[in-house]
């Protein structure tokens, strides 16, 4: 049982770390890494809950979440490449056109 509660705590802690990375970092790639961090910590949480309830539904959810994370990276990287190649934007500070 201690391993279940331990992994729930670790998962919540790494979720907070992921959110902190998204909020504090300024470059687009680091933000994507933070997003990946949050999604994977939720995966760990799902597996811990799955162990807690001793059914496999949570582990099935994780497979789908991994797929979504892959799509997220694909879309996010394509946006980052578009911003850098076409408009030479590297960090969030350059995004100031739409502010009135």
């Amino acid at each position: 049982m201690i391993i279940v509660y331990g992994s729930i705590l670790i998962a919540l802690f790494s979720f907070i770390i992921g959110i902190a990375i998204i909020i504090s970092k300024r470059t687009l790639i680091m933000i994507l890494i933070g997003a990946e961090f949050t999604l994977n910590s939720v995966n760990l949480l799902f597996i811990a809950f799955s162990k807690l309830h001793s059914n496999a539904i949570g582990q099935i959810f994780v497979i789908f979440t991994l797929t979504v994370a892959a799509i997220e990276i694909a879309v996010g990287l394509s946006i980052a490449v578009l911003l850098y190649r076409k408009h030479k934007i590297k960090s969030i500070e350059d995004l100031k056109e739409l502010k009135r």
Binding site: L83, I89, L95
Partner: peptide, 8 residues
């Protein structure tokens, strides 16, 4: 492009 980044 700026809009899509903010939205994403």
């Amino acid at each position: 492009s700026e809009a899509v980044f903010k939205y994403f």
